[in-house]
Amino acid sequence: MMKIRTSREGKVAQIALAGRMEAESREQLQTAGDQLIGEGATHIAVDLSGLTYISSAGIGVLVRLSSLLREKGGEVALCGASGVVLTVLQITRVITLFQMRDDTAGWP
C-alpha cells in the first residue's frame, strides 16, 4: 500500500511517496502528478525516502511525468532514493533522466 502526500508553492511542487509502489498503485501517482501539472506546477520534487518498493510500472509513471514537465520547460527531481529503490533506478538507467537530490532544499 502506498501513501502519497502532495504540496505546491507556485510552480514548484512536492510529492512524497511512502510504502510500496506496486503496479496497481501507479494510478495514484499519475493522478497526483497530473493534478499538480494542471494547477500550474512545472518543477516537481518526488520524495522517495519513504518508499520501499518500486517496479517498472512506477518508474514508467515517473518517466511520463518527467516528459510532460520537460515539454513545459520544467523537470522532475528525485530525492532521498535509497536501498532497493535506488538499485532499481540504477539498473533501469532512468537515473540519468532525473535530477537526483538528497532533499528538496534549495531546489529549483
Binding site: S55, T87, T92
Partner: peptide, 30 residues
C-alpha cells in the same frame, strides 16, 4: 535493502544480463 546489491556477486550477474531491456532488469530486482 542496503542498496549495495549491484556490487554483490548476484548483482554483478544481474548486470551482466544486458541483453534484456533495462526496465526488465529493474523488474528482475523487484
Amino acid at each position: 535493502t542496503t542498496g549495495n546489491f549491484l556490487e554483490t556477486p548476484a548483482g554483478s550477474y544481474l548486470r551482466s544480463l544486458n541483453a534484456f531491456a533495462p526496465e526488465v532488469l529493474g523488474d528482475m530486482v523487484c
